[in-house]
Amino acid sequence: MSEPTLVDQLKQKFGAAITGANLENVDPWIEVAPEAIVAVCAYLRDEPSLAFDYCNSVTAVDYLHVDEKKAAKSEWQPHLEVVYHLFSMQHKHSLVLKAMLARWRDDEVGELPEIDSVAHVWRTADWHERECYDLFGIHFLGHPNLRRILCPEDWVGHPLRKDYEMPLEYHGIRGR
């Protein structure tokens, strides 16, 4: 499997849903529109020549400069990336998918951005998406059990966001 042909194959199949690709990076990645993520993932898993039956990890990266000086020089707009690392047990090849999300839905602070859950494509994604929800505040639509997993259930905020601030106090315990 080579990435350029895969990108072409996916573009043929999904058209505009494949929004971009970076083939120069150490791990080349393909960018998928958030609406199409489930369809693309299911295709990647079920297409025999690809057979990405193993999901290594689902995670996210928060792109936001808290420092205004840096933000001014930044080459990207603030956004969230959901990153999927896939592997094929059959063909022993791997793939990175990305989906770009706004940091807040409709740019309203506090409204969690939404993306479809792939937990029913790979069961691995179940807990990984819970972790993303917990630490990044991404709402995975259609997830069977979207609760916090590492932080306590009554925790406020999503700690791995760059603008997260530790609470002053949690149940009488000093936070910072």
């Binding site: 150490v26 791990d27 290594n56 990890s57 995670t59 990266v61 990153v83 690392h85």
Partner: peptide
């Protein structure tokens, strides 16, 4: 600049690190 993801075979399974 860039990002890399690598899994290794740790005793308990595949330990992966992702760096951006």
């Amino acid at each position: 600049k860039g990002e890399a993801y690598l899994e290794t075979e740790a005793p308990r399974g595949q330990m992966g690190f992702y760096i951006v």
